[in-house]
Amino acid sequence: MAIKNLKDLYLDQLRDLYSACKQSQPIVAEMGSAAKSEALSKALIAGNQGIAEGMEVLAALCNEHGVDPTGEHCKGMEGLVTEARKHALETDYADEDAQDAGIITQYQRMAHYAIAGYGCVRTFANRLGLDGDAAKLQECLDNTWEGDRHMTKIAEGGVNKAAV
C-alpha cells in the first residue's frame, strides 16, 4: 500500500501495531509461566489480556476503515520478542529472582514500544478528526501505561531487591 497522506499512514500504523501486539502475546505468556514471583506471573497474565483487548480495538478500527488488520508484519516487535526470549527465557540464570528482574525488563521494553505506537496512532486520529478512534486508542494507551507502572511497582516492591 502506497502511503499518500496521513490517513494512509494512520491505517498502516494501526496494522503494524496489531502485528506488534500479536507477536508479543506468546512471549508474554511464556514469561508468565517462567516467572517465579506470583505477583509477576499474575501481572503478565493480566498484561496478556490487555494485549488481547488492544488487538480487538485495533482490529475493529481497521475493519471500520476497510483494511485488513493482519496486513503488516512489525519488524520492531519481532526484534523485541527475540531479545525477550534470549534475555528472559534462554539465559542461564543461577537465581530465579534475577530472572524475574530480567522478565520485567523485557516486558517493559515491549510495553514501551506499544506505548509509542498507541501514542502515535492516537495523535494521527486526533489530527484526522477521528474522535471516536482517538478515544479508543487513548484508552489502550492508558491501559498500557498502567501495565507498565504496575511492572515498575513489582520490580521496586521486591523483585529487584530479592535479585541483589
Results as ranks from 00 to 15, higher is better:
98 A>Q: 12
106 Q>E: 13
98 A>K: 06
33 S>C: 03
47 G>Q: 00
162 A>D: 10
50 G>V: 01
117 G>N: 00
66 G>S: 14
156 E>S: 08
132 G>N: 12
62 C>T: 13
73 H>G: 11
58 L>H: 08
76 G>N: 02
56 E>P: 02
112 H>L: 05
3 I>Y: 05
155 A>V: 07
140 C>P: 02
116 A>T: 14
88 A>N: 01
59 A>D: 09
159 V>N: 04
104 I>N: 11
135 A>G: 04
41 S>Y: 12
7 K>R: 15
111 A>I: 03
122 R>V: 01
132 G>P: 00
51 I>P: 00
162 A>P: 02
58 L>C: 03
96 E>I: 12
160 N>M: 09
67 V>D: 00
41 S>N: 08
75 K>V: 08
121 V>A: 12
159 V>L: 08
106 Q>A: 06
103 I>R: 00
25 Q>D: 08
12 D>E: 15
31 M>D: 00
157 G>V: 08
76 G>A: 09
53 E>N: 10
123 T>I: 00
27 I>S: 07
95 D>S: 13
160 N>C: 03
65 H>I: 10
159 V>C: 07
30 E>S: 10
153 K>Q: 13
109 R>M: 11
15 R>A: 15
57 V>H: 02
5 N>R: 04
19 S>N: 05
71 G>M: 12
151 M>R: 00
134 A>I: 02
88 A>T: 06
11 L>I: 11
10 Y>W: 03
155 A>C: 08
139 E>F: 01
137 L>M: 03
61 L>P: 03
91 T>E: 11
119 G>C: 02
83 E>H: 09
90 E>P: 10
67 V>F: 05
160 N>A: 02
1 M>H: 15
73 H>M: 13
62 C>Y: 06
4 K>L: 14
16 D>A: 15
2 A>G: 14
37 S>W: 00
158 G>T: 11
57 V>L: 11
44 L>R: 04
37 S>H: 03
31 M>E: 02
7 K>L: 13
4 K>C: 12
113 Y>A: 03
96 E>V: 13
37 S>P: 04
141 L>Y: 13
64 E>H: 05
76 G>E: 14
63 N>F: 01
8 D>A: 07
120 C>E: 10
